[in-house]
Design a protein around this nucleic acid. Structure first.
Length: 592
RNA sequence: GCCCUCGUAGCUCAGUCGGCAGAGCAUUCCCUUGGUAAGGGAAAGGUCAUGAGUUCAAAUCUCAUCGAGGGCUCCA
């Protein structure tokens, strides 16, 4: 982590530029719909800004161009941003036709409140900022004049619906997103990153590389794994399963449905029902598809009396769960309705907790690093206002989590009060090749379930004791993780993960037999190879293998057949020339 | 779920003002048998997402349904 504190975004020049660009955009939109446009709010955001409007008609991409054009005119006017402090009365007069502003003024006059509705200590000053013909209720700050917005370093990006104050019961507004930078170069770079992200989109690559699909017929949010995608997933799963077994986990399996009574005991029907599917009736009794695996692992723990000597028990499973997600939030592999967690539950004694957490975190980092992800950040979420269990237990658990993160040397942030009501947790997020953050691992204490299910073990003193329980998932959901992997590698999986590691490319039909011989020998060594025996030109076969991002292309013609060799080309375009089969095997093995 | 945009061949996409359903790639067949990113030709391939409506006539206009994409408090 950097040693000097970074400038707060809110204090930066860029923040002012973006905020000012939002005002200029609002002016342009108001002019487009004189007397009809209602303006809401327009703050700077991570890479740009937005402004929400209530307009008489829906905006189109063409409107964006027109608005941009007008914005450039306003910018060239070098209009100063003038600040003015006013009374609530004056503010109401100014915005008498702007209901959203009036609502904001009411809020300000009432003293202001934060997002939890708690009043703020200081009553904020009401201020206006005016540029050219446009005045907005605004705290500021802004640049000095519109000329300080670089007209070739901003761009309007998209139109989206957004609720007033994020409340689905309030009017839906039209939001225009824009991005703004200091220089045209920075804008360029940002747009490049967006483009690159589009190219890497796992939904696009999933189709192009024939990895998975989602079918209308089957249903939204339900993933079909095609042979190549499944091959990658199986490699990941096999690797992880082996690692689990080596790290003291015991593999278990559990069913996809369970009786309603189970979910009542677990509390899911109380707290989680909105995310569960309607029950199915089996001989007059309600059964539910599982949204989580924990009750089953608990049932395994409870299946016989446990001694303190038996602990810890670590049950792991690739458990497929089903959760109701609203249709609008479904997204490729990352937000789905049925997915498989690499789930495990650890039952242990209080004196084992610290060690168990440390092991779980180290294990998680080990597996993720093996997958080629190296840039992590941990979030330690502590006790929220509403919680179950004893404060002392919480304190001890949080301390164990903190020790683990610190000893793992992962940068972490405290998420004060961000834990679940049943326990504190560590979430591990990774940054992928494009620097985008994904949440993968989670390690969560649970002070709720052991009590609800009455879990016990017999202590050294012969007395029943309650075990601690820890949920953890490393890759999270296999679906989402595969999506992250696809985007991280842009579909060009490293050799050990590649669904097809090498394609044999016979130059002419008479070389097909030799190509097949070679393929069989490589397959016997457990390489994943295919023979492209189409009656196509070698160039075309190379191109196709290249587009499929196959790591090695092995060209075989007369020379190779005679010498028992293959001509090796990498997907990078590098030509390694002819190598004996043994040489190639040695090379490939060294890169696994 | 809600708002906007969209849904045409396996894929990517044209289709003007309502007037015969199109291209490239992929597939199949034929020719070609080659040396590191697309050889040539032919054929086949369609419930224009689904259903209703308007019209002499609908891929095109209207409504509904299904599905996809973007977004839905980073808060004046």
């Amino acid at each position: 982590m950097s040693d000097k504190p970074a400038e707060r975004y809110e204090d930066s020049e860029l923040y002012k530029i973006r905020h000012s660009a939002a005002h200029v955009m609002a002016q342009a939109v108001l002019e487009m719909f004189p007397g009809q446009a209602k303006i809401a709010i327009g703050p700077p955001i991570a890479d740009g800004f937005y402004y929400d409007f209530d307009l008489p008609r829906a905006l189109t991409p063409d409107d964006l161009e027109a608005i941009e054009k007008r914005m450039r005119q306003i910018i060239s006017g070098r209009h100063p941003f003038k600040r003015q402090e006013v009374s609530a009365e004056a503010a109401r007069a100014q915005f008498r036709d702007q209901p959203y502003k009036l609502e904001l003024i009411d809020g300000l006059e009432a003293g202001g409140s934060d997002e939890y509705g708690n009043p703020l200590a200081d009553k904020p000053v009401i201020s206006f900022y005016t540029q050219d013909t446009f005045t907005d209720l605004c705290r500021g700050p802004h640049v000095e004049h519109t000329g300080q917005i670089n007209p070739s370093a901003f761009k309007l990006l998209s139109i989206a619906g957004a609720y007033w104050r994020g409340d689905p019961d309030r009017p839906q507004l039209q939001r225009i997103y824009g991005t703004a930078w200091k220089t045209a170069d920075e804008l360029e770079q940002y747009l490049w990153k967006i483009e690159e992200a589009k190219k890497r989109d796992h939904r696009k690559l999933g189709k192009e590389l024939d990895l998975f699909s989602v079918s209308d017929e089957v249903g939204p949010g339900l993933i079909l794994w095609h042979p190549k995608g499944a091959r990658v997933r199986v490699i990941v799963e096999d690797f992880s399963r082996k690692a689990h077994l080596e790290n003291g986990y015991e593999w278990v399996f559990s069913p996809h449905i369970g009786r309603g009574h189970l979910w009542e005991t677990s509390g899911h029907l109380g707290f989680y029902k909105d995310s569960m599917y309607a029950p199915m009736d089996i001989e007059g009794e309600a059964y539910y598809a599982k949204p989580m695996n924990c009750p089953f692992h608990i049932a395994i723990f409870k299946s016989r009396p446990r001694s303190y000597r038996d602990l810890p028990r670590r049950y792991a499973e690739y458990g497929t769960v089903y959760r109701y997600e609203q249709s609008g939030v479904l997204h490729g592999l990352t937000r789905v309705r049925g997915f498989t967690q690499d789930d495990a539950h650890i039952f242990c004694r209080p004196d084992q907790v610290e060690e168990e957490i440390r092991r779980a975190l180290d294990f998680s980092l080990y597996v993720l690093r093996a997958m080629g992800l190296t840039d992590f950040k941990a979030y330690l979420a502590t006790r929220p206002e509403k919680y179950v269990g004893e404060i002392a237990d919480w304190g001890m658990a949080i301390e164990a989590l903190r020790q683990a993160v610190e000893s793992a040397r992962v940068p972490y942030q405290l998420d004060e009060g961000g834990g679940a009501f049943y326990g504190p947790k560590i979430d591990l997020k990774v940054n992928d090749a494009l620097g985008r953050e994904w949440q993968l691992s989670t390690i969560q204490f649970d002070f709720n379930m052991p009590a609800r299910f009455g879990l016990e073990y017999t202590g050294e003193d012969g007395q029943p004791k309650r075990p601690y329980m820890v949920h953890r998932a490393l890759l999270g959901s296999m679906e989402r993780f595969m999506g992250v992997l696809i985007e991280h590698y842009a579909g060009a999986f490293p050799l050990w993960l590649a669904p097809v590691q090498a394609v044999l490319i016979p130059i002419a039909d008479r070389h097909v037999a030799y190509a097949q011989q070679v393929a069989e020998r490589l397959q016997a060594l457990e390489f994943r190879v295919e023979v492209d025996q189409r009656s196509e030109r070698m160039q075309a076969k190379i191109r196709d293998a290249q587009l499929q991002k196959v790591p090695f292309m092995l060209v075989v013609g007369d020379k190779e057949a005679e010498a028992g060799a293959v001509s090796v080309r990498r997907r990078t375009g590098e030509d390694l020339k002819a190598k004996s089969l043994d040489e190639f095997v040695a090379l490939a093995k060294s890169e696994l």
